[in-house]
Design a protein around this nucleic acid. Structure first.
Lengths: 332, 332
DNA sequence: CAGGGCAATTGGAGCGATTCAAGGAGCCGT
DNA sequence: ACGGCTCCTTGAATCGCTCCAATTGCCCTG
């Protein structure tokens, strides 16, 4: 493989000059610069990132850790981040954790091994020590889709507000029986949504007479949503169900339809995320929209800023959710 | 950051011994090994992967390049590969190309910079020179979901056979008017599916009187499928449409339903991939199933074998597709 | 008991970049 | 003509690790 020395020899300059052309082009005389550039071109030179990082150069490796890339919500995040990062010539590495804390720490561990210069993470239950270790090797961290602790940048949705929005909407529409399907025990996001949901109900005139049937499911996907259908109890009055995300809502809705339960007459459903798909289903979903694109973009901007500017001040950005009413809820 | 030397000092051994504990544990005396292990633990030592790679050690970095991770088909591939690779302590980095040749080469370029030791790629149009350059730096490559050229390992579905299967099925069911929706001009996979589809029709007794209306769409997603609905011409006889993948099929189907077109009475649809979701829709999809899990697993196994064994013989594995008949096609 | 063989350990020479301090060349004003 | 500048350019030291060749004991055997 051709290295910096080969380039230097062909261009008849010193190794450092070649390095300068790559990292501080402005201090190299135009003629020399061009000569070096040509030499690189001729030789098909590609700098060795490992050597670069080892020598203490600016790393160009950022890791993105998400629950599940095939969930369109995360898909959109990844796409946004990749687009922006590739333009800045960063190398983006995505890892899925399946919201599993063990895989999450494995993923972080591997990122540490790589001495990633930045990490964008959607934690399920982020162990503080993992963050500490990342910090110690100088890796910048931005927490995405979860409230950040102090001393760390974070970009999140106000999940409590989102849950509230859904609860309020159900109450407005006259529902009196409620359920939540998701993974509140395993992910902070769902827990907050559930909390907001409960809060809205409790604050209503009917007060604490309103109870929420909580159905904890194993994953955040369609299959889990389907499974929840069997456990959902609905007798006389229609049940209003808030789902932890749209995929779960889809699964639940499909399974209910198969059993002859009609949405929204028998069961009302509110999803979460507003992924593209749910707007196109035969019964378009009422859901809580997250400004995914903006979140992702902001998160990357914060990360880049933090990587470039050592004096950077941490900030926690909170986005507001928005309720999108479609056909899976109806006025009673 | 703590390095190998710190560990060596604490354990009162030489640097090399620490290295040996990590890479060739069997040649270190058990007592010594334990002492080193303890020291690592105490110091919270994490080997620096960059240094390792630079020193010519066995790299543990593999790249996975796919069209779109949020497509469940690729999602499943990624999940499978990640599971297996993480167990082997490989670092998996996923990149999306959106089937765009430019992003594809950018992705490969970055992988070269990283000196990845292995790459699993789903090419749209893989430029031969990119492969060559990867090869030159010693990166092992396995092509996934596309026919491999000689001198390279590949795992693929027999897409032509898949297209044939669909065509045959439509003929059996009595359809006489056909269309294909997908990206045949931009991806080899869709092109092969279309070719097989055409072949089946041409080989039928009705011969070449059967024409296929080809609708090229910009992406392989739901939105593109929806757009295709406007361009699909169907007059008297029902049209049988083969879609390049299930997402396109879903989009097409949703859009048609909105305009009052009934599936399968007015338009029959056959998807491709058999992603989980399509089985649960209100009208479950007829589709061509790909053994994704096996493909992904086989691809990774090949890659690992190739990375470990320099004498490795390239092979091209071809999986057979399978038709799954559900409710979007009906006997005429 | 010398010598051979084996197991365990280790210092040193890179790997390919970066950064820094120092050196050389040309130009200016005096 | 010369000191003092600015601009460019460069050799050397370094990063943390792996591998190799060499070394050290130790046990066994003839």
């Amino acid at each position: 493989m051709v290295n910096i020395e080969d380039v230097a020899r062909l261009a008849a300059v010193g190794r450092s000059t070649v390095s300068n052309v790559m990292n501080r082009p402005h201090i190299v005389a135009p003629a020399t610069r061009q000569r070096v550039l040509d030499a690189m071109e001729n030789l098909g030179f590609v700098p060795n990132e490992s050597a670069r990082v080892l020598a203490g150069g600016p790393g160009r490796f950022v890791g993105v850790v998400v629950h599940d890339a095939s969930n369109p919500f995360f898909g959109e995040i990844i796409r946004t981040v990749e687009d922006a990062a590739l333009n800045l010539r960063y190398i983006v590495s995505t890892t899925n954790t399946g919201a599993d804390p063990v895989r999450e720490s494995t993923a972080v561990e591997l990122l540490i091994q790589q001495r990633a210069s930045g990490v964008l993470i959607t934690p399920s239950a982020l162990p503080a020590d993992a963050l500490g270790r990342l910090r110690r090797i100088g890796t910048k961290v931005v927490v995405l889709d979860a409230p950040g602790e102090s001393g760390i940048c974070s970009v999140a949705m106000d999940d409590t507000a989102g849950g509230r929005l859904a609860g309020q909407h159900f109450l407005d529409y006259g529902y009196r029986s409620f359920a939540f399907v998701g993974t509140p025990a395993r992910t902070t996001q769902h827990a907050a949504r559930l909390a907001g949901f409960r809060a809205a109900l409790e604050e209503s005139p009917l007060g604490r007479r309103l109870d929420v049937q909580v159905i904890e499911v194993p994953h955040e996907d369609i299959i889990s949503g389907r499974q929840a259908a069997e456990r959902l109890q609905h007798r006389d009055s229609p049940v209003a169900v808030l789902c932890g995300n749209d995929l779960i809502a889809m699964g639940l809705s499909f399974a209910l339809q198969e059993r002859g339960t009609v949405v929204p007459q028998d069961v009302a459903i509110c999803g979460y995320d507003d992924i593209d798909m749910v707007r196109y289903l035969s019964v378009p979903f009422t859901t809580v929209r997250q400004p995914v694109h903006d979140m992702a973009r902001t998160a990357l901007d914060l990360l880049v800023e933090e990587m470039r500017d050592p004096e950077h001040e941490h900030q926690a950005v909170l986005f507001a959710p928005e309720l999108v009413v479609r056909a899976t809820t109806a006025r009673q």
